[in-house]
Amino acid sequence: MTRLILHIKRLLPLIIFLSGPLYLSAGESNETFRHINLGGGFTYHSIRDEGISSLLYSGRHNTVRAGINNHASSHLSQTEISFSKAYLHPSTYPELTESSVKTIIGKVNYTYMREAANIFNGHLELFAGGSLNNSYVYHRHMLFHNSAVRNSLYSTVNLTGMGAYDFTWNEKDLTLFYRMSVPVVSFNIRPSYAMSKPIGYLTNPGNGTKAFLESVEVATVDSFRGLTNSICLEYRLSSIHGLRLEYKWNYYEYNSGNTVKSGTNALLLNAFVNF
């Protein structure tokens, strides 16, 4: 029985990974405002993953992003998918181009927030809620051979807060959003201490399910700390179209055998259409 509970606990990341899009369709009946968005931009990434190297790697990602938002009178929900790719170089000798790390990051994020306060004559709305963030990170060190390819999966449950401020500037209606998100618990799969495969895949090479389950590490703020900060300016082109310019900062560090510290600064432009 204990073993079964342990397995259910370890399956949670998969459940969480799949639950976001399902929840979105469940919440559609209450929306008063719904739109899809599509866009992209650049992300500057710095990472030191002791599993790969003791050196700091950094570089610029090209990022694309798509999402669906529901905004009802009392709550909002948002599902977002983003994908970015870059070649990162060691900060100490960026001219040595062959010593690069090919990095691909895929993210699926689901956020649900309820309105907590409405102040300044309705100009400023404050929201509070939570989000589920699933990140897949691929690294390949182009100079190395064995253990050069590393895959990581981070599923985090976050506390999220947001403020939305409506204002007019030069006779244009604009909204300024600020959002902050802090992970409280995460379910992670990382390469093992010295090899590129997660530990479960080394100890159960013939059983994929068991390997996956035994590779999941549950982490709280003791070992997994992070913060996502974003400022977004929304400009409505018409009643159904608009543009969003966003600056987003994300940082996390994870201490599990090999410490990884990663920070990204993204500048993204999104177009959205109501439907």
Binding site: S54, H123, L124, N229, I231, Y247, Y251, G263, N265
Partner: peptide, 28 residues
């Protein structure tokens, strides 16, 4: 009012600096 909101947001955004958390590389 907008000035106050902007000040708050800019202050919060100043936390957006990973260099405070990720140590520099060891000296060569």
């Amino acid at each position: 009012m907008i000035t106050r909101v902007l000040i708050i947001i800019i202050t919060l955004s100043l936390t957006a600096c990973e260099k405070a958390f990720i140590e520099k590389d060891p000296a060569n």
